[in-house]
Amino acid sequence: MPSGSDRGVAANPAPPTMAKVRVRFARRGRMRFASHRDVARSFERAVRRAALPVAHSHGFSPRPRLSWANPAPTGAASEAEYVEIGLTCPVAPPGLASALDAVLPEGIDVLEAIEIPLGAPALAELINASRWRLELPGVRPDELAAAVTALMAVGELVVERATKDGRRRVDVRAALVRVTFDEAITNEVIVDGPQPGVDGVVGHSDAARCAIMTAVVRQTIPAVRPDDVLAALVAVAGLRPPVPPMATRLAQGLLDDRGRLADPFGADRVTTSTGPAWSGAQPAPAVSDQHDAAS
């Protein structure tokens, strides 16, 4: 290895991390097709463009200190992605959120930022499940309900998925905590949702033929993805959506014993949301008028 003085970086030792901010952001519309690596790169550029005092790793190739928790798979939209940013000096979270949001591509939208103590538990310890909404254009709600009921009735349902490391097997049934589906939500989303082409969530012209389900899925290793849930519905009930369904992660958090998710920011939140409101994809509360297919 070259001596330290040769390498340039040693002359500018990276300042240490003095503060940490957690950011919740959404991946909307076309940006659902970005991979986690794509999103990570755009954040690395955004923190530079926003001139945030981001801490860097030490060594030969210093990298900005951004740590990620459980990114949604490519193709799925999300209202609940999380990243933790290490800073060399404290920055007020609302200002950081709006500065970052202003320089990120449209569709990667910062929703909220909070400061956390340096010794706070890792994000991963605050998240063990996700709530997903799956929209199935061209599928009747009663077809979907029947398929879900069949799936929840079995004790185990293993699906296989091809990954770049070979084939992986996951038990979808074991990871599924609860599923709700409601025609009222279907109509509400179709009628009040954002414009087609802007967010890409809706745009299915035939409201009656779009079934929607909301599923709480426990984080497992390997993770059960929305695609796996659909594969399970195909396997158990022969459900065959005519067009690719659309998945949106609505929330992440810690499961309580009633199958609800505790907000990872709950304990540390001191400010309110700074991101743009987006009525169509606010996490739907598990209200009593929904039909629980299982628990």
Binding site: R30, M31, A34, S35, D38, R45, G75, P244
Partner: peptide, 24 residues
């Protein structure tokens, strides 16, 4: 825009991000 016709095809192709535009 032809995006509404293109979008259902994107989950079925490799690296769909290259077709979505929206570059800074």
């Amino acid at each position: 825009s032809v995006f509404s016709a293109l979008e259902p095809l994107l989950p079925r192709v490799a690296k769909p991000v290259q077709y979505i535009g929206g570059e800074l």
